[in-house]
């Protein structure tokens, strides 16, 4: 069985029609379903947050059988994820796509869990600290996409679980938890 890095690829990854957008409805639905799951799983294990449609993305081509997805097919599969709320387009031209293997709500729950685990209920942290600090090392929060993190924090702020404020340095923001 083939692998991409540590990611184990399914057998059908070597099936040439898998890389051609199928025109027949039933077949296409199944194909899209398989692609959606593969993209999410791959992104989760490989910590990929953003897929650029025009950039090389390992999953979208298979050198063994010399097949790669067309732009149209890539957009179709990602759009299917977007319509399910598992991805978001970052621009109007649909060139960059944010992959949400956890929904924003799930990310927010993860943050709350992290705060409670570390006894940070009333403390202050910078956004950057959450992403790359010592505390978050070994958790899913470590190295997470800033856009997604900000969205999750805003959701929590909205619920009154924390407050976001401008920090001393110009490019970072602070978070005051109040759980």
């Amino acid at each position: 069985m083939q692998t991409l890095g540590e990611f184990k690829l399914p057998h059908f990854f070597n099936y040439p029609p898998y890389f051609t957008l199928q025109p027949v409805r039933d077949t296409r639905e199944k194909q899209i379903q398989l692609w959606k799951e593969l993209i999410l799983d791959y992104c989760r294990t490989q910590k990929v947050f953003v897929i650029g449609l025009d950039e090389d993305f390992q999953l979208f081509s298979n050198p063994t059988i010399e097949r790669s997805l067309s732009h149209e097919a890539r957009e179709a599969f990602l759009s299917a994820l977007v319509s399910e709320g598992r991805a978001e387009w970052l621009d109007k031209g649909h060139r960059k796509c944010l992959i949400l293997w956890h929904r924003i709500q799930d990310w927010a729950d993860l943050i709350l869990h992290f705060v409670k685990e570390n006894g940070l209920e009333d403390s202050v942290m910078t956004v950057e600290e959450i992403r790359s600090g010592v505390e978050s090392r070994g958790t899913e929060l470590h190295g997470m996409d800033r856009t997604i993190l900000m969205r999750a924090l805003k959701l929590l702020e909205h619920k009154g679980k924390l407050a976001i404020f401008k920090g001393t340095s110009a490019d970072d923001e602070g978070v005051k938890f109040s759980i």
């Binding site: 069985m1 059908f12 029609p17 077949t27 194909q31 398989l34 593969l38």
Partner: peptide, 12 residues
Amino acid sequence: NLFPEISPDDRY
């Protein structure tokens, strides 16, 4: 057409 043959729950 192999698509219907592939299990939707377990792709492997």
